[in-house]
Design a protein around this nucleic acid. Sequence first.
DNA 1: TACCGGATATAACATATGTTAATCGGAATT
DNA 2: AATTCCGATTAACATATGTTATATCCGGTA
Lengths: 223, 223
Amino acid sequence: MSEEEIDFLEGLQNNTVEVQAGVDFVVEGDDRKTTFILIDGWASRYTTLSDGRRQILSFALPGDILGLHINFNAQAHYSATAMNTLKLAVVDPRRILEINQKFPILASGLSWCTAREFAILGDQAVRLGRLPAKARLAHLFLELWHRLELIRENNGKWLALPMKQSDLADTLGLSLVHTNRCIGDLRKSGLITVAKDHIKLEDLDALIRLSDFDPERLAEFSI
Amino acid sequence: MSEEEIDFLEGLQNNTVEVQAGVDFVVEGDDRKTTFILIDGWASRYTTLSDGRRQILSFALPGDILGLHINFNAQAHYSATAMNTLKLAVVDPRRILEINQKFPILASGLSWCTAREFAILGDQAVRLGRLPAKARLAHLFLELWHRLELIRENNGKWLALPMKQSDLADTLGLSLVHTNRCIGDLRKSGLITVAKDHIKLEDLDALIRLSDFDPERLAEFSI
DNA sequence: TACCGGATATAACATATGTTAATCGGAATT
DNA sequence: AATTCCGATTAACATATGTTATATCCGGTA
């Protein structure tokens, strides 16, 4: 990267804002068009059904970009909420277009981010469509664990999990009760240990076998 | 659009190829990096689990772009197959980067395509995660029907459906038998009529209510 | 310390969906 | 016309998951 590119990238992150846990900083139907870079904390992207039920589509971890592909003619088609205290860089999406025009290196970085988001959302569809409940949990844990590893926020076999079981349920398309049952099963069979806001993945290989997780798919997106 | 832009767009479609039904023209793990514009026919994007089961992620209809976000460092993370005879324009993805640099109007069109693909894949996740089987079917039918309408390939209440029930099952995360049961139920309750490779949506409002489908979400992507 | 409220856990039961197997139908082929 | 094959259909049964209700745990707060 040239100095100019580095300067531009840093300039994007000038305007930061803090968001408290539980606050929706993007709301489905919003006209406001903003791109966010997640500097610190975890966020979730979700949609709401007409009867109030939720489906969480994906989690955003530090370094992830939210709202990369603003459609200027449309409203936000999902909501985003802070799972813990966030630090967000607020970016005018027009600057994203500017990147594509002026900074080819950065542009290919954006393209990389998009490909990655697609892969993650595709994996989510596979979890929801083809895995039984326990495997869905294991698969999600492995995905988050590997993503944290890629941004060097991992901590051995421990996985930070700043979310309630009801959030896991809304992610995995399960009921709260069944989510709880399955976590208990995983615990009883020694595959995970549960602590407050954290779990420990005791046997990665067994979890991988159980969930048909493919570590290679995310590894392609290492830096 | 300027003449130059129109010329460039047409130039992209110079190199076309025909693909027979059932042929995989992108295979998961491939190193080959190509972008396709679907000129004619239907395609499906899918991944395969280690035990051979499939999850179809999305359908591509005429006008859709496949492989817009090639990650030059990675392999294809899904496969794509022709549902009927296809006509594909084969595009070097470097020309996509070129669009972003030189043709801002076209670039915003690409961004629009990406936002649309995200919305469609997000809707697929909602179907899989939060809708019961019959509603999943209705929701998918409505999505395809609306998408066909947007490209003026609709035909009244009739919906072309160039796929087997096992393809629907692999799309909706259901077993073949249950898919068949639910189609029968929809038929018996008069919501749809089934014919060879087509169904007729007899009562759009009832289908919308059944599946919590939101016509607005796709309408945002009308042309 | 006692209380409160949210989150987690467990149980009993209801329902949706999966599995296996058998049958049926129609289009292509002999 | 008979055969074959593939997809659609149906039935009987097994299993996973949802629902409702209640109990327990735990951190915050009066």
